[in-house]
Design a protein around this nucleic acid. Structure first.
Lengths: 148, 148
DNA sequence: CAATTATATTTGTATATACAATTGTTGTAA
DNA sequence: TTACAACAATTGTATATACAAATATAATTG
């Protein structure tokens, strides 16, 4: 992906600015590809992400603040995101007995099995995205990204 | 920026998936920082981007399709984005005389001087974002991003 | 030259996101 | 024990974005 070509600019961009734009373009591509992979399951990347977090809880419930902390993008209205997952039957929500301010959110069996399918789709999309990288290059890339 | 720490996961992520998440996290940070830099000028990153494209035209008008092609993120409703820039007095729009389907969009003098201020703010934000990088590292990062 | 197709933009609508205000509950200190 | 502050989630509202449909103009073709 050549930045100058994608945004059709004739003059070379300064290195810093180019990097910033480059990151945005690559991330756009990633989000589009991953979003498409999830389309058949009618969930957004955020929703998928929440399902994965809930599975990671291994039966223990998560409350909203926990979800918010662990999501890739914080979005303040996790309530409504969970509402959507509930309406699809993928998660359940109870008021926490010991502290009625909190809620307990669980993934359902339906959610778990749907998630297994989504995992496959996402794995394919990811494999396709990084197909030009060697494992060493990916490591280098992660080390560089760590510097941000 | 340590991915596992940010999303508070205990187990190590697979390299490919980690890279994908890493890119999102870094880009979130970039967008937040750049967005904050533009806040005093009451323009979004997209709007700033359009102003820069128009300046690059050096007096020549741009029509909507040209803008769309050159924007970092395509968004289909460039009309309304331009509406907002017009309401701020930063750009002007005329119907193209030779082809009445097209519009001609120009940056105004007000827009040019505002843009100079925004440039400074963006340059500061970018400098801050990439402060831990050597120029060589930035080059390497761009080469790796090209592989997507 | 009338009808059709292609082009360029605009508009409508649904969904997503950000931010602030509100509600309900719990903890705490006078 | 009654205020008051802190906490957790929810709701309201404005703005942003994505996608499809509609409008207006121009080009093409029989």
């Amino acid at each position: 992906m050549n930045v100058e070509e994608v945004i059709k600019t004739q003059k070379a961009l300064p290195l810093g600015g180019k990097t910033i734009i480059h990151l945005q373009l690559v991330t756009n591509k990633v989000l589009e590809s991953v979003g498409n992979a999830l389309k058949p399951y009618d969930v957004s990347l955020q929703q998928f992400n929440v399902l994965r977090i809930l599975r990671g809880q291994k039966g223990n419930p998560a409350n909203l603040s926990t979800l918010n902390e662990r999501m890739v993008t914080k979005m303040s209205n996790t309530t409504r995101l969970v509402d959507k997952l509930i309406s699809k039957g993928y998660v359940k929500r109870n008021v926490c007995a010991s502290n009625r301010r909190k809620v307990e959110i669980f993934i359902t069996n339906t959610g778990e099995s749907a998630l297994i399918e989504m995992d496959k789709a996402i794995a394919n999309a990811e494999r396709e995205l990084i197909k030009s990288f060697t494992s060493d290059e990916l490591k280098k890339l992660n080390l560089l990204l760590d510097k941000f």
